[in-house]
Design a protein around this nucleic acid. Structure first.
Lengths: 236, 236
DNA sequence: AGCAACTTTGCGCAATGAGCAATTAACTCG
DNA sequence: CGAGTTAATTGCTCATTGCGCAAAGTTGCT
């Protein structure tokens, strides 16, 4: 009996890729349980880290609280850091869904901003905690960054679909990379702003921040013919 | 006797910040020795990783080859991954120097490209090896990404100086972040291209790749008054 | 030379990450 | 529903790791 089975109403199972849930549509009990323990571990790890610091608790303590064996932990995560970062698991799907559901008429840039906003919906609060801990814990930060890399991958595919360019076109990759970086940066500011005394942070501000961030991008780069590309074999 | 002292002619010592050498101007013997062991460890670690794989050797083996104690290793690096990534130590200074030495008349964007090219001078080959290993080793990749974060920090300062904007202006940070991301992406393509059978990769191609990458950026964003910034307290 | 500052080293230990085989729970199909 | 298949959990075990501590060895400065 890993986690309180009663609490499992219907979460979503999912196939894994590099430890991140990608397709949360299996509905077997087995999958739901797996997902539940994973979530429980990540969630509780974050909580412990918030109170006692990243190094302030051991995996053994964590699993004791959650109710699984020490060995099981290693079946899910390769490290404590990876476990904590797993609280962001759902976000990838949030962004992707938001992008897919955006009207075909919307511009790529605004679509990406929309996707980012979608994550902000339920993610920013956790992100604050995550960032607070990770700020001085290099291992955690590294894990988070590595996780983002996968997001970039997936967003690239989506951008490629929309723009009609190859998903490994350098501009596509970089645009996706930029979007993720922008999200990280904006969320950080947002989170810190929220924690301040006069915390008048609203969703509108978040949109403004995103706009400021995206103003760096050349608005019509992807809609236009490829730019100066002397050696074609490489720029693809 | 850590490393062959005879070989130490004049490398450069340096104060540390998060494990990355920042100011390589101390010339004491002590500093040079430290730097030498650090380098020796990183270098040899990379070599071992190339031949036996990341998990194919232990820290104990590494230090045995280099000639320092197991304990000393931990004085320098917190993990095997961190040690390997340390072969990139000098690159940060390369970029920074290149940026600083660029004529004041040059545009920010071209200056950044120049800085990236400076790294390519001696770095790309190692980067190939690094990437080859790190591709499937999440821990290594994570470390590298975390290292880049520091580069972004420093580049931001430089960009701020040139543009006259605050170094924590969101556009400055994102521009720096973009530059680093672009560098990573470009180097990856470059390195893989070089390894291919018909390896006709020249420095010119590298410049072209960088141009393609930077074509995403809005050319006059930083030289112009700040863009739409509704809530000023946040966009700063 | 002699003292202060810093590094290296050895020892030791708690914590980690993973392989293996046995157990248990979930799913499938007749 | 019940037997067989598949997959997850668990307990053992062990090599490896990360780091605190104090002793011994270097370097730097006067």
């Amino acid at each position: 009996m890993p986690v309180d089975t009663d609490v499992i109403e219907h979460s979503s199972g999912g196939a894994e890729l590099s430890g991140i849930v990608v397709t949360p549509d299996n509905v077997g009990l087995r999958e739901r349980k797996k997902d539940a323990t994973r979530r429980a571990l990540a969630e509780h790890a974050l909580e412990l880290a918030q109170h006692r610091g990243f190094a302030g608790f051991t995996i053994s303590e964590l699993v004791a609280d959650v109710g699984v064996s020490r060995r099981t932990f290693s079946n899910y995560f390769a490290s404590k850091a990876e476990c904590i970062v797993a609280v962001t698991d759902g976000w990838l799907d949030d962004v992707l869904d938001a992008i897919r559901q955006a009207p075909a008429s919307a511009s790529l840039l605004s679509v990406l901003q929309t996707g980012l906003l979608a994550v902000a919906q339920d993610g920013v609060e956790r992100w604050g905690a995550l960032h607070a801990i990770g700020a001085m814990e290099p291992e955690l930060q590294a894990c988070a960054l590595a996780g983002d890399e996968i997001v970039v991958e997936m967003v690239s595919d989506e951008v490629a679909r929309r723009s009609g360019l190859a998903s490994d076109d350098i501009r596509v990759r970089l645009l996706a990379g930029f979007a993720v970086t922008a999200g990280r940066e904006v969320f950080t500011r947002w989170a810190t702003a929220c924690q301040e005394p006069g915390h008048s942070a609203s969703n509108a501000d978040l949109g403004a921040l995103l706009s400021a961030a995206f103003s760096i991008i050349n608005p019509d780069v992807l809609t236009v013919a490829r730019p100066a590309a002397p050696t074609d074999s490489l720029t693809t």
